[in-house]
Amino acid sequence: MSAKLLFRLGDAVDADVYSADGRLLISKGTVLTDYHIEHLDKHQIAELSDHSEHTEEAASSEHQESVIQKLYEENMQLIEGIFHNINDTGVLTEELFIEAASVQDDLILQLRDDRDFIQCILQKVAVDAYLFKHCLNVGIIARKIGELLSLPEEDQILLARMGLFHDIGKLKVDQNILNKPGKLTAEEFEEIKKHTKYGYDLLKDSPLDSIFLLSSLLHHERNDGTGYPGGIKGEKIPMLIQILSVADTFDAICSNRVYKGARSVFFAVDELVKEAEKGRLSENIILAFTAYLLQHEKGRLIQLKDDRTGRILHVHPDKPNRPVIVINDKQVLDLKKVGLTLHQLMH
């Protein structure tokens, strides 16, 4: 049955109308126009679905969010405690490491089936807890990238652990510089850069695999030699640390800081692709990760410039930031062909 036979122009719908995949199409009380009728026809809506199913799904989703929030807070508190313990004692004990790993695994397990887990972790907590939030997020994101690259499970786990401790050296940086709201002087930036060496020194006497020391020391190195502290290049940077660097950069862009607001995932995708094109970060890693991010936005309504809206129809594996989109559900535009990025259409 056509929507035109079920719904009449000018009627007010008496219940929310959902698509087959559970997306809300029209809210209860909406007075139907020709646009609404055509919209329903496109989704082949011939009958009203049982709203109780969606209510149950919403309740389940809220419960899952509550579980994730609790686990996230537990991870944050534990990481903060461990960091301060290492700062005071100069060593990460095996017991503390195992405790951190166990709690992190519980959180990752809850997040793995969450389609929006990237957005979920980016939206957590405030600026004053940035260091602990950032380390937790980087571990989760790095593990996901490892999964996207089909790395062995043990390497994925290692990436998650590396993320937890990669920025611990920032505890030794002057906090007034670290949290300065304005632009850093050249001398202040040099002090910030020392966090890589500070982190190495804090972890060197701990019973950890050497990759943890290297991840703290090398996560700001870049493939073209423009990074720090050593200016090393390409294959001299271990692959796991190259993955960590991508996760670190992505979370930093999307996070609130005292000196900048959080930027969107679409902006971050553009920035990561630029870093790959410049040869600073691994192209293979970035293409896999950014394609994953954009694939998860397919079908969702995206606000563009000039009050237009768009939806992603196809993501090009070689140019994820230039997908094929449909504007206002009418005009199909291949951004790769016209040389624009999705973020450019949004801002």
Rank of each mutant, 00 (worst) to 15 (best):
Tyr200Ile: 03
Asp248Pro: 03
Gln156Glu: 13
Glu47Thr: 10
Thr30His: 00
Ile108Lys: 11
Ile140Cys: 06
Leu151Trp: 12
Thr55Trp: 05
Leu203Cys: 07
Ile157His: 12
His51Arg: 13
His63Leu: 12
Glu188Tyr: 02
Phe132Cys: 02
Ser19Val: 05
Ala268Leu: 03
Arg222Tyr: 05
Ser245Phe: 02
Met239Glu: 11
Gln156Thr: 06
Glu99Arg: 09
His347Leu: 09
Ile68Tyr: 02
Glu62Lys: 07
Phe250Gln: 08
His220Val: 03
Gln77Met: 07
Ser264Pro: 02
Asp329Glu: 15
Leu109Val: 11
Pro152Trp: 04
Asp174Lys: 14
Val324Ala: 01
Tyr18Phe: 15
Asp270Tyr: 01
Ser264Trp: 00
Glu53Asn: 10
Ile327Phe: 05
Leu131Gln: 13
Leu107Pro: 05
Asn328His: 03
Pro238Gly: 03
Lys236Ala: 15
Ala126Tyr: 00
Asp306Ile: 09
Leu92Trp: 10
His51Glu: 15
Tyr292Arg: 02
Asp201Thr: 06
Gly225Trp: 02
Glu99Lys: 13
Phe7Met: 06
Ser27Lys: 15
Asn87Leu: 13
Ile82Thr: 13
Asp318Glu: 14
Ile241Cys: 10
Gln303Ser: 13
Arg280Cys: 08
Lys193Phe: 01
Thr226Trp: 03
Ile168Leu: 07
Ser60Lys: 15
Ala101His: 14
Phe289Thr: 03
Gln303Ala: 14
Ile177Leu: 06
Arg161Glu: 15
Asp209Trp: 04
Val17Pro: 02
Lys193Thr: 04
Leu109Lys: 09
Lys28Cys: 09
Glu95Ser: 11
Ala46Trp: 11
Glu271Trp: 01
Ile45Gln: 02
Ala12Cys: 07
Ile211Phe: 05
Phe250Gly: 08
Leu164Asp: 07
Glu57Asn: 10
Asp201Phe: 06
Leu304Asn: 05
Asn284Gly: 14
Asp34Cys: 00
Ala100Glu: 09
His296Lys: 14
Glu80Phe: 05
Leu5Thr: 13
Thr33Glu: 07
Gln104Tyr: 06
Phe189Trp: 12
Leu96Ser: 10
Val338Cys: 15
Leu217Ala: 10
Thr55Met: 08
Ser210Gly: 03
Cys254Arg: 04
Val269Ala: 15
Ile241Trp: 09
Phe189Thr: 09
Val258Ile: 09
His43Trp: 07
Ser206Leu: 01
Tyr200Met: 08
Glu99Tyr: 00
Val17Met: 02
His195Arg: 06
Asp167Thr: 04
Glu57Met: 08
Lys194Gly: 06
His84Tyr: 15
Ser27Leu: 04
Lys4Ile: 08
Lys183Thr: 09
Arg280Lys: 15
Gly279Glu: 05
Leu107Ile: 08
Cys254Phe: 04
Asp21Asn: 13
Gln175Met: 01
Ile211Tyr: 09
Ala252Arg: 06
Arg311Trp: 01
Phe165Thr: 03
Thr30Pro: 00
Gly169Tyr: 12
Val138Leu: 02
Pro317Arg: 00
Lys144Glu: 14
Lys236Asn: 15
Ile108Asn: 10
Met346Lys: 11
Gly310Thr: 02
Arg257Gln: 11
Leu218Gln: 09
Lys28Gln: 11
Pro317Thr: 00
Leu287Gln: 13
Gln242Asn: 12
Leu136Ser: 09
Asp88Tyr: 10
Ser255Glu: 14
